[in-house]
Amino acid sequence: MDDDRPDVLLTGLLFYDLVLTGLGKPPTPGEEIWTAGMGCGPGGIANLAVAAARFGLRTSLATVFGDDFYGAYCRDVLCDQEGIDLSLSRTADGWPTPVTVALALPHARPGSRGGTPVTDRALVTHGQEPPYSQDALMGDPPEARTALVHLEAEPREWLAKAAANGTRIYADVGWDPTQRWTTDLLDQLSLCHAFLPNETEAMAYTRTDSARAALGALSELVPVAVVTRGGDGAMAADQTTGEYAEVPALDVDVLDATGAGDVFGASFLAASLGGWPLAERLRFAVLAAGLSVRHHGGALAAPGWYGVDRWWRSLTDPDLKRAYGFLADRLPADVGPPVRHAPVTPPNPHPPVGPRASARQH
């Protein structure tokens, strides 16, 4: 409690996300489809920041806001609503905040479950390269207990500086659109304490043919290796404690999987800062990610302590009660106020059909 450093340091690109759910099928040219639901809110790096802050972690975010409605809205939500420190962030004159429209399409696999669920999404983004790089925003990064980062092919200078000043780096990695999966990226793991890719990424970067083999290869490169497996849960190895754990996903109804992997990562970090055993860290992260996919968007779907506590108190399944019994001792006495989810439109099962709708199809 006498450590006044930020618990979590983050930097990355911020988006304003508009998520449309309830589509029966993808749209085709010349066709209008009515959706059953819509939500909006901050996205991108905000997913990690909000998920961490809702677990009571002192969260410092370095990002760029546009000087437009979307930037002002995201800044207000992150700073005033979520209590995130934005002193390292900047507002750029004349630069538009990136905006993404996400179409949440029918599940790729019926019955997909929690953790990092498998769903289809189509994304359309309007945006420009930000006027400030991550290194420019960070400069000489402040000392922090941890940092949550997305590794990229081109190493960021601030990352080595942060590792050198004692910040523990928790990293994940995104999809490689070139699909070359250069193994040079794994050189950056020498700076990291933990690495949390999904199984597709883990197998591609390690040139292995199973999640378990990928985990074994990553365990030789980083102290804590985690591989998320969507509907099959997650597995991890902690070389600092000698622990290995594998946990199943939760069986949940998925509304929108946006940001579920980010919620997983932030939740795993929060439990790690608490010094929990590896199996508890994994179960907690799977639970938080599973709860998040029941709501629109990424950042504002994060459950926080309030959401986890509400789930635990309503739980009746005896098997889950046993598996998650550790929450009885882990949940704080004060779980905070109800979290605020993304503003949504009420579901409309009977969209209007008439001259206007017909005319727009021609």
Rank of each mutant, 00 (worst) to 15 (best):
N198V: 14
W34D: 11
A279G: 01
A211Q: 13
P332S: 05
G12C: 07
A162G: 02
D256T: 10
A53D: 01
A301L: 09
D187W: 01
V286G: 02
Y244C: 15
C74G: 03
E157P: 03
G304E: 08
P142T: 06
G297M: 15
V173I: 13
V101C: 12
V101R: 11
R356Q: 01
T28Y: 10
D251M: 07
H150S: 04
E246S: 14
D329H: 13
L255N: 05
R340K: 14
D85H: 11
T183M: 06
P223G: 02
G298C: 08
G307Y: 10
T183Y: 00
F55E: 07
M235T: 08
T63C: 07
A270L: 04
F195Q: 10
T100M: 10
T28D: 00
A36L: 15
G261S: 11
G71P: 15
P117A: 06
L9C: 09
D76K: 15
L250T: 07
R310S: 03
V99Q: 09
G83K: 09
T183R: 12
C40Y: 03
D238Y: 04
G242L: 10
A260V: 11
P155D: 08
V286A: 08
G174W: 11
L218R: 02
H107W: 08
G261T: 09
P106Y: 00
T35M: 03
R283W: 02
L61C: 06
P110K: 01
A245C: 05
A357N: 06
G24V: 07
P141N: 00
R58Q: 11
V339M: 14
A260S: 14
G166D: 00
Y70D: 10
H341I: 12
P6F: 07
G275N: 01
D3C: 01
G111E: 10
A52W: 05
D2P: 07
R75W: 15
S219I: 01
R168G: 11
A53F: 03
F195Y: 15
N165K: 06
P106N: 00
A260P: 13
G22V: 08
A160L: 03
A234W: 03
